[in-house]
């Protein structure tokens, strides 16, 4: 009995691009249809969970993901401070661009945060049973 299921690995390989496509669609169309950064980020984090199911190795650099998440939070803080809180009357196009960029930033941040939590729970919480 091998430790990797043929059915799971092939089905996850089939589902990978579909999950990515749905997540990116939800994030990018957040200002036009139901969705947005938070939901799309949660869908994108599913890709990392599928990656663990298919290949449960600790070869992901979690520390760089943490640095990326802090950087993204700084950008999320910076963008409204620069654009919204300065009483600049934004036109239609610039506000649409602002919504798009904020949705993408929030989606990436939620994706990295949920992935970090998942991988920390999987690899760092054992209680001495497994090693």
């Amino acid at each position: 009995m091998s430790d990797k299921s043929y059915l799971m690995s092939h089905f996850i390989g089939f589902m990978y691009p579909i999950i990515l496509l749905i997540g990116v669609y939800i994030i990018v169309n957040g200002h036009q249809s139901p969705g947005g950064g938070f939901h799309g980020g949660a869908v994108l984090a599913t890709v990392f969970i599928c990656r663990y199911l298919e290949n449960p190795n600790e070869d992901l650099r979690i520390h760089s993901l943490e640095i990326l998440e802090k950087l993204l939070f700084f950008l999320i803080l910076l963008l409204p401070v620069v654009l919204l809180f300065n009483n600049i009357s934004m036109s239609i196009i610039s506000n649409k661009l602002y919504l798009l960029i904020m949705n993408i930033l929030i989606g990436l941040k939620v994706c990295t945060g949920l992935s970090i939590i998942f991988y920390r729970f999987v690899f760092y919480e054992g209680g001495g049973i497994w090693n």
Binding site: I93, N95, L99
Partner: peptide, 14 residues
């Protein structure tokens, strides 16, 4: 006000 068709996005980002 915000050029967002989705009112939820207009509320939580503007």
């Amino acid at each position: 006000d915000t050029a967002a068709i989705n009112a939820v996005t207009a509320i939580y980002l503007n």
